[in-house]
Structures are given as structure tokens and as C-alpha cells.
Amino acid sequence: MGCLFTKHIKQIPGYEEPTVLAGETSFTVSEVEALYELFKKLSSSIIVDGLIHKEEFQLALFKNSNTRNLFADRIFDLFDVKRNGVIEFGEFVRSLSVFHPNTAISEKIEFAFRLYDLRHTGFIEREELKEMVLALLKESDLCLSDDVVETIVDKTFSEADLNGDGKIDREEWKEFVARNPSLLKNMTLPYLKDITIAFPSFVLYSEVEDSDI
């Protein structure tokens, strides 16, 4: 049964061996196999092709495949390392590993920086931050005057943009996060600590595979 299962999953485009992924991430081999069960579910929710499309990602996050969200888009784009419009299994595991409790803080800081660097300039620019604040207000159905939004952005920049050049570079970001560690709160998913225990429904195949290898 294990051999048949292994042959089947090797045909999935973008599939990578759990041992390889475990070697490069904070996950164990069994946890990568458990994640494969989750990946299969997500990647076949709309289009059964073994790849997570943006609509499937949105469906999983919002229970609605049409719900657009700037920050979900950014996370999808960062998971889609090859930038081909879909998330493959290896990309899924490597990216989720950033959110593992055991992953180095430096990786989380870098991922968050790239998340906020909307236009991939290597900086978080003032206009980008304002765009993100406005997107959040729209998502939350909150109404703040433009003056208040400007004040929030100005105040944040006055704390983060230490050299005053109108943009936040990586070093400034690191210092800002060090002074405001709660900014990384959403960069850790406690679920990932031991996914095989947290999600026992995924363990079946993992145990079969472990015993058959």
C-alpha cells in the first residue's frame, strides 16, 4: 500500500520527497507527510491538479473563493516562489516552515519585510504603508479620515525610518521589529509545532508510509 501511495504522489507536479523538505525546514519527515494530506485537500478543492491556485487559497482562508484581500494576495505571492501563479507542494512546505515556532526569528523578520515590500523595491515605502492601512480599513469596514490615516503613517515612519529618507530598509525594519516584537505575532503558527498531533486526521498516511519505508 505504501509503495502504491508513493508511486501515486510522485506523479504530482511539484511534488518533492519529504526527506528533502524535512532536511531544509523545521518539519520532521512525518510532519511533511502530514502536511501533504493538507496540501492534497487544499489543492483539489476547486481544480484537481495537485497545485494550489489563488482561488483555492482564498477558499481555504475565507471560505469563499472570490474574497480578495491584499495581505492574502501578498502571502500567496510569497508562497509562489516560482511566480507561476500556483503553489506547489515544496513551495507550500518551505513557506509554511517560516511560520513554525522553531524557525529562526531572522527568517520571520525577512518574510514579514518582503510581505510589506509591495512593489519589490527592497524598501517599505510610505505610499505602500498607506496603501496597506487603507486596505485594512476597507477590509474591516472602518472609516477614518485621510488626516488620521496620514497621522498613523507619519507616526509609524517617524519611529521606523531612522535615517529619514522616506522609506524603511531591511536594517531599519529589523530594529523596528526588535523594539516592537508583537509585529511578528502572526508569523508563528502554534499549530505547526507538531502537526501530526494537532491534526490526527492527517496521520493515517504518514504512519503507513513510515512503517513501509
Binding site: 482562508l61 504603508l129 498613523i152 509609524t156 508583537s182 502572526n186 499549530y191 491534526f199
Partner: peptide, 25 residues
């Protein structure tokens, strides 16, 4: 009142809540 913009974004946006991925199990 002063709000840290990044604090607002990271704590409030549902787009960051990847725990929802696991609820689809």
C-alpha cells in the same frame, strides 16, 4: 491616539490568519 500602522495591519487583517488553512481539514 497613536496606532502603529504595522501593528494594526498584522493584528487585524484576516489575510494573515493562516490558521484558517488548517480548519479546512
Amino acid at each position: 491616539p497613536f496606532f502603529n500602522a504595522f501593528e494594526l495591519i498584522s493584528s487585524m487583517s484576516s489575510g494573515f490568519d493562516l490558521s484558517s488553512l488548517f480548519e479546512s481539514k
